[in-house]
Amino acid sequence: MEKNINELTNGLTIADVANEACCSVATASRVLSGSKYPVSTAMRTRVLDAAAKLGYSDNLKKRMLATDQNPFLGVIIPTFQNPRYLQFINGIEQAANREGHSTFIMNSHRNPVLERQLINSLIQKKIGALLLMSVDESSESLRHYLDLGGFACVFESNFPDLPNVLNAKENRFEAGRIATEHLLSQGHHSIAFLTTPLKHFQSRRLTLDGCRFAIEKHALPFSFQNIFMASEESDSKDSMYELEVGYSMAEKILQHPNRYTGIVCQNDMLAYGLISGLKAAGAHVPNNISVVGIDNIHFDNISFPRLTTVDTLAGMLAQRATQFMIRMDDYVDTNLVPLSMKPELIVRESVRAIG
């Protein structure tokens, strides 16, 4: 039978931590459980120091590792507004259902502070497996989760890769290269790149690196003036963020003196928004300008023209990663081999050959 939260394997209790920290049991419990109840920074530090001195975290780890009592997989995604993340969710759930597991899906709304709170909630719920698409620049919350006995798979991150974590990241460099190479192969030499904020986002920078590699491979100059980037990022209250960005950038692209013939978009939702904005401005895709997306979200039957894109096989990647996590041994190899998939070009109707 599972022990009470105050009843630990070596007899150590929250009361012992409270006594060491010279505070009430209620205060110690709020700090150690990650409760949102306000506790001063000084008091929080005292409680955590006391817990570390007494070895209380080791007991928490033993509770976290009781995964046979909680066959849930925690999943944290940045937003529900971009269907590319639904590809990951579908892949995760397909694999989890086959293995008799359930998923606990949470949305960080592109907010790193909320992401940290969600990771902490998994600790409280004793969910020992996490599949994460992170927007946080810091890995502190994830490392804390790992230290307490959790295991994680990271699909996206803005911090350096961690040991004892399964990295299953899309090959965004190759996706950017393939998208750009396709435009070049169709005679396009004046190419722009549309992206959401780069900042610390590794995947977005890798996409741009792939685009640049293709451009320079063809002995063409690469200029940052050809990058059209949104200044801010947050979930839209009335629409979809990426659609709004793509739509709003159309006029700027058309008015630019470079007179672009082709656009590579960081993701499909940007591309769909851009195509809509170009139409509103009187430009025809692909006759006036060609557009390539990345992701292969399945909107091709409700959008005209049907979007040429690069499939990163996110759903299949998620399936493989989830299956690995469920079947993995209790002891994790510190040299886990990252999982990856080779992107594939999907040619439809949004690119035309010129020259």
Rank of each mutant, 00 (worst) to 15 (best):
E7N: 14
D16P: 14
N19F: 06
A21D: 03
C23G: 09
S24P: 00
T27C: 06
A28V: 08
S29R: 15
L32M: 14
Y37S: 15
T41D: 13
A42F: 01
D49I: 01
A51Q: 07
K53M: 13
G55M: 06
G55K: 02
L65F: 00
G74K: 05
I77D: 01
P83T: 06
P83A: 07
L86C: 08
I92E: 00
N97C: 13
R98W: 00
H101K: 14
S102A: 13
F104Y: 15
M106L: 13
M106I: 08
V113S: 15
L114F: 01
Q124K: 15
K126M: 07
I127M: 09
L130I: 04
E137R: 15
D147N: 12
G150C: 11
C153A: 14
C153V: 10
F155N: 09
E156G: 04
S157N: 12
N158W: 03
L162R: 04
L162F: 08
N164P: 01
V165H: 02
V165T: 09
E170I: 12
E170Q: 15
E174W: 00
A175C: 11
G176K: 03
I178M: 06
I178L: 08
I178K: 04
A179L: 05
L183C: 10
Q186N: 14
Q186C: 14
H188F: 03
P197Q: 09
K199H: 10
H200K: 15
F201V: 15
S203K: 10
G210N: 09
C211P: 14
K217I: 03
K217G: 08
S223Q: 07
I227W: 09
S231D: 10
E232I: 08
E232S: 09
E233I: 08
I253W: 00
Q255P: 02
H256M: 01
I263T: 08
D268Y: 11
G273M: 03
I275K: 05
S276V: 07
K279I: 11
G282Q: 02
H284L: 13
P286A: 00
P286C: 02
N287V: 04
V292P: 10
G293W: 01
I294T: 06
I297W: 08
R306N: 04
T308F: 04
T308I: 08
V310A: 00
V310L: 02
V310T: 06
A318N: 04
Q319H: 06
F324E: 10
R327M: 09
D329M: 09
P338Y: 11
V347N: 07
E349D: 14
